[in-house]
Design a protein around this nucleic acid. Structure first.
Lengths: 232, 232
DNA sequence: GCAAAAGTGTTTGGATTACACCCATGC
DNA sequence: GCATGGGTGTAATCCAAACACTTTTGC
């Protein structure tokens, strides 16, 4: 049994890290920042910030996301908490990782006082990161893949209007597999999509039809039928 | 941009809560404690404790589990972190919930200085708990169910030697469904089990064969074949 | 014999797989 | 015309659900 005074426990710092994922040309990208200050100055890192003493984790995460991307009302998914006592050289900082799924074209990415540079990097080309951020990124990516398999979060990172091929590429990239085109289309048949009267433009092949996700009909299907989203 | 001094952030307390699950007569139980001190004295709660300033989250969780159950070398699964500023009346305590799966017969549950009582309670009969522990318990149970569907963790809560019917009851309880006996047995065919030369005793019906989980062959199947555990 | 649960086989329909084929566009 | 991807059909196979039936124990 420990005999340390309660007050001595109030010596931690707590932060939230936000892994922002997007999709471009079939590749899942992550938004990383190049740190503008020590420690790990000039090294790429996951955006994150300390949490205010009276701030909820959710609010802090939304604040961090907004400061970096100017996006609001994006769903934040909690992933994992990292509490190794030595993970931060300046003191004990416990961090809780989250991820957000955004459309890359919606983001007005910009440098800031704590980020001298900022860039979208394909998940398979991520360099060495600051702190334990490679570990955090990998485990957060694993949670994303889990969600991609069981929830329709893919539509949060695809453009509003997408082709079925883009959808397929996203899953192929995430699960590192190749799928048969015809079979993939049969598999996604139950997902309620809105078939738009629009086609791709300026492509050097037959232009593909555009679709968007029918979120309303999806909810209805879950409630009324026994429907469960399931990929892979 | 925040302008608060870095030192002001070191005003938190951090704790680990351990939801201990077991299985008895086909029902998933949780080990709860009746608090011996304020706040919430005499109220049921999830066991947990503050983390030492230089202690890793994993070590702290193992310590808490051992103090309560005298069990070591039990896998701890991280679930979710709760950081609402008002969740603890005595200060800002951020807690990270975990779960452990144990065999109820292995646990030497005992009261302690911080728990005047301790009991296994079926998940469907959990009373009002202290703090935000009902919320924590529910979300941790959801993570357990997720794991039950994709990893062979069921065998950590069943007796070493179990009947196929016990296995079925566990899944029926977790997913709140009824399964056909014959179909269930076909579904679990790919799971490598050791068929023991032993049977149930003192039952007033045909005694069932006992099995145990073949962890070694399971690992081999994953590595050599393309096998993926998948229930429900 | 009867109750209760163990344990197995058969049929059916729907989903998954592999593969083949035709279509529209830019160059 | 041809390269490139868009888009669809078919047949074989596997898998899941529904259901029926036999077996073994205690009382």
């Amino acid at each position: 049994m420990y005999k340390i005074d309660f007050q001595n426990f109030f010596t931690y710092s707590f932060s939230s890290d936000i892994v922002i994922f997007g999709c471009q040309e079939g590749e899942i990208h992550v938004l990383l920042i190049k740190r503008a200050m020590e420690p790990f100055k000039d090294i790429w890192a996951i955006p994150g910030d300390l949490i205010y003493p009276d701030e909820d984790l959710q609010d802090a995460s939304e604040r961090i996301l907004f400061e970096l991307t100017k996006l609001r009302n994006i769903e934040l998914h909690q992933a994992q908490t990292f509490a190794n006592p030595n993970r931060h050289p300046q003191g004990r900082v416990i961090t809780c990782s989250h991820f957000a799924l955004v459309r890359i074209e919606d983001v007005v990415a910009q440098a800031s006082s704590w980020a001298e540079d900022i860039d979208w990097i394909p998940m398979r080309e991520v360099p060495e990161l600051a702190f334990d951020h490679n570990l955090i990124l990998q485990s957060t990516y694993d949670v994303l893949k889990q969600k991609l398999a069981t929830e329709p979060v893919c539509f949060d990172m695809l453009p509003e209007k997408f082709t079925l091929h883009e959808l397929q590429l996203l899953y192929e990239y995430a699960f590192e597999i190749n799928m048969d085109k015809a079979n993939f289309r049969k598999k996604i048949k139950p997902i309620p999509l809105i078939s738009l009267d629009e086609k791709q433009k300026n492509v050097k092949h037959r232009p593909a039809k555009l679709y968007s996700f029918d979120r309303k009909r999806f909810q209805e299907k879950i409630e009324k039928e026994h429907y469960r989203f399931k990929m892979y």
